[in-house]
Write a protein that binds this DNA or RNA. Sequence first.
DNA 1: CACACATTGTGAAAAAAAGCACATTCAATC
DNA 2: GATTGAATGTGCTTTTTTTCACAATGTGTG
Lengths: 223, 223
Amino acid sequence: MAVSEIMSESPKVPKPTIERLAIYSRPLEDLLEAGSPVVSSERLAILCGVNPAQVRKDLAYFGEFGIRGLGYEVKELLKAIRAILATDRRWSLCILGMGNLGRALVENENFKRRGYIFVAAFDADNRKVGERLACGLTIEPVAGIKDIVSKLHVDIGVITTSQKGAQRAADLLIDAGVRSVLNFTPAQVRISSSCFLENEDIGLKLENLAYHLTRIRGARATK
Amino acid sequence: MAVSEIMSESPKVPKPTIERLAIYSRPLEDLLEAGSPVVSSERLAILCGVNPAQVRKDLAYFGEFGIRGLGYEVKELLKAIRAILATDRRWSLCILGMGNLGRALVENENFKRRGYIFVAAFDADNRKVGERLACGLTIEPVAGIKDIVSKLHVDIGVITTSQKGAQRAADLLIDAGVRSVLNFTPAQVRISSSCFLENEDIGLKLENLAYHLTRIRGARATK
DNA sequence: CACACATTGTGAAAAAAAGCACATTCAATC
DNA sequence: GATTGAATGTGCTTTTTTTCACAATGTGTG
Ligand SMILES: NC(=O)c1ccc[n+]([C@@H]2O[C@H](COP(=O)([O-])OP(=O)(O)OC[C@H]3O[C@@H](n4cnc5c(N)ncnc54)[C@H](O)[C@@H]3O)[C@@H](O)[C@H]2O)c1
Ligand SMILES: NC(=O)c1ccc[n+]([C@@H]2O[C@H](COP(=O)([O-])OP(=O)(O)OC[C@H]3O[C@@H](n4cnc5c(N)ncnc54)[C@H](O)[C@@H]3O)[C@@H](O)[C@H]2O)c1
């Protein structure tokens, strides 16, 4: 299980595998804190609501982290997953749109713990500009984005503007040199193909729930 | 395209289809507002970043909504999708944990527009209890949850407590008679199998982004 | 009212993902 | 240092989801 092996570009890692790796890390943090030295794929699978073989296969894409007959060393496994997900380094984020959601995100401690640091916050509304946030950041005018992004080496831009402002926010980010964008608005933003875009529509899961509620009465719990 | 047909329990609808139906509704709302009478599967697919055949197949699970040679009537299609997703009726929600995220959710206008109405807000912190929120709700003590849930016919319980408080919040909800739960904390909560649970971990997408950033340099935009 | 044209709806093929089942390998014990 | 027991890693199978490709069926036009 060399680091080079962890980092090597594996032939084809399923996208769902990446999402699950992040899920696995949650209970692993708890186990580490609780002092459990090892965990089996079966136990981890139960904690995450997935199939044990799935856990093993997901990990196997990146190397051999387990000890046969025993399981996985919690500390080592967590370290390995963090290396895979690149949560073991610091990511600089900036955020556009300091409404309710934007404020909630920058104040959130989990992101900081995982190495995602908000280094700048912007808003198009001049009444908000200059406001000091609890996390220590001051809301900046969007006009200054280019300077700040290049000065602070922003890796990821987060969009939490109103739906109408999303495309403009994306354009500002790309123009400022940010190559990856996480969009929390329900708007579909278009972006240069050389950049990376991920959408997170918080409302979608609710609609899912409503659908299932109207059908399956007395349904089983999902992942 | 009878309503009965829309509502009939289809043999097997893929889970991703349901998620996409909600995605389709976003640009459809824009198109309706913009006054476009019809939209083709190809155009809608582009707007949503998916394959045109996918759009047609997704819709075909629930009936025939299109006009060959023309496309889909925007208004009718939106109505049909809303009927499928049960967004055309009113859902009563309650929420536990009125921190930053909880406040952002209850103030959000999109949820209200789609029929998801927060009718009660709870917090375990007595200092917060009694506080009047901008949306009109007053933060209630968790002790009163059972009464309020049954009185107001709550359909869905939302958890936005701290990670540690999530399981307790879930227990309170189930005990109060809520049959479906949307959990925004990264904690895995255990729940009676007769109830429905959906998890929305807002941090996951960020970890995804970091992973892809470290690999694919100059990657293409995703869905 | 036939004809051209566009776009749907869908069976069949391909691709992707999940799950099974077991040989393999390690720890622990006697 | 063999033996037992447990849990991994993985080839193979099954299931699920996506995509292709085209016949079917509408609209609009002359
Ligand atoms: N609040 C929630 O719980 C929630 C839930 C689901 C989705 N969302 C989505 O997240 C987004 C933000 O939600 P919110 O509740 O924080 O909204 P909000 O209206 O409270 O805040 C939006 C902020 O963005 C700023 N803004 C608008 N255009 C901008 C631009 N081009 N550049 C910079 N700033 C700009 C506005 O000045 C405002 O301060 C919305 O699109 C909303 O649909 C929010
Ligand atoms: N804020 C974000 O942007 C963000 C992002 C990702 C995930 N999350 C997750 O969402 C959750 C809430 O985030 P937040 O920033 O609003 O946290 P927060 O700490 O601001 O608020 C948590 C609230 O929950 C209350 N609470 C705790 N246990 C409770 C219980 N059993 N019943 C009722 N209320 C209880 C607390 O009193 C507090 O008011 C956290 O689990 C967090 O990890 C938040």
